[in-house]
């Protein structure tokens, strides 16, 4: 393994590289979920949306080149857009279902996970074999070092940068724009929003759809950047973890960014250790993100307190 050339330094480098590469799906899904939950709804179905996004991005990117004579520089970007649109479609279903009277968000969410992943596997069967053109990356390593190891580690996707910029933008949106304030009002006290003449249903619908759009983009990142292929196991529960991550981040977009980086890094612990020759407990280290999810859930739950920062009307059942 080439990494052995730089010895133990490979571990932090590996984790850094993993953070830069692997945190974008967490980031997009958690920002999407953050937006949804700020409006008072929970969308567990983002796991299914993520898979739909990954599949449709990959399929469009591949079909664009092989069937519709697109340039390989353009077709993956069209793929990203279609992934977002597929996400919006999924969001529309969730938004409509979860706002029916006496329907529970969580139940709809679980149904949407199964529906989304099933549909993605069904439609994605023909695309497992072929190779689709990938999104380009900025070669940050080339500016910093001549070492090929460092160069290959420090590649940054424009999608990731977009996600990083999106976090403060969303934070500003919630603080300093009227629609942002309305979303918070709807999520925190729907009665207040109603008294201001804001349609709770409409705001929630738009938030769920926009959040699902972001989750779809997160899916595109999975199949077109990293790991950069389409398989049925591609998301490995990242969509669900992102929901936990929003709680961890206290419904704050900036903290969603930090939390996503943290999870992305944690995910890279196993591979990084393996690269320096620690094979024992590989699966255990790979479970790091899941263990962290569990730990966060345990640490943040308490029978005596309600969570600070949680939108007041989160997950309450309609009528």
């Amino acid at each position: 393994m080439a990494t052995e050339a730089i010895g133990w330094l490979g571990v932090p480098l590996g984790i850094l590289a993993g953070t830069l590469r692997g945190s974008a799906p967490f980031l997009f899904v958690s920002l999407g979920e953050c937006l949804t939950e700020k409006s008072g709804k929970i969308n567990l179905g983002l796991e299914g949306t993520l898979l739909m996004g990954a599949m449709s991005a990959y399929a469009i990117s591949y079909l664009g080149v092989s069937q519709w004579n697109m340039s390989p520089a353009i077709s993956p970007w069209i793929g990203v857009l279609v992934a977002g649109l597929a996400g919006m479609g999924m969001g529309l279903i969730h938004a409509w279902l979860s706002q029916q009277p006496r329907v529970n968000d969580i139940a709809v969410g679980i149904a949407m996970i199964i529906f989304g992943s099933g549909l993605a596997f069904f439609l994605g069967k023909p695309f497992i074999q072929p190779q689709a053109p990938q999104l380009p990356s900025f070669e940050l390593g080339k500016l910093l070092s001549s070492s090929p190891i460092v160069q290959s580690a420090l590649q940054i996707s424009p999608l990731f940068i977009l996600g990083v910029l999106l976090a403060p933008a969303m934070n500003w949106f919630f603080k300093s724009t009227r629609p942002g304030l309305f979303i918070r009002a709807v999520g925190d006290s729907p009665d207040a929003a109603l008294a201001m003449g804001v349609s709770v249903k409409k705001v929630r619908m738009l938030c769920i759809i926009a959040g699902s759009f972001l989750a779809g983009i997160g899916g595109a990142y999975l199949s077109l950047v990293y790991p950069g292929s389409w398989t049925e196991r591609i998301s490995s529960g990242q969509g669900l973890m992102a929901v936990a991550l929003v709680i961890f981040a206290r419904w704050n977009p900036i903290q969603c960014l930090w939390a996503s980086l943290f999870f992305g890094g944690a995910q890279a612990i196993g591979p990084a250790l393996q690269a320096v020759g620690i094979d024992k407990g590989y699966y255990l280290f790979n479970a790091a993100p899941y263990v962290l999810t569990l730990l966060i859930m345990i640490l943040t739950c308490s029978p005596k307190k309600t969570l600070s920062g949680a939108p007041g009307a989160l997950g309450s059942i309609n009528g």
Binding site: L181, R184, A185, D188, S189, D191, A192, A193, A195, M196, P311, G312
Partner: peptide, 9 residues
């Protein structure tokens, strides 16, 4: 009768 301000703001 019931407050219509948003407590978290």
């Amino acid at each position: 009768q019931h407050f219509t301000s948003v407590p978290a703001m």
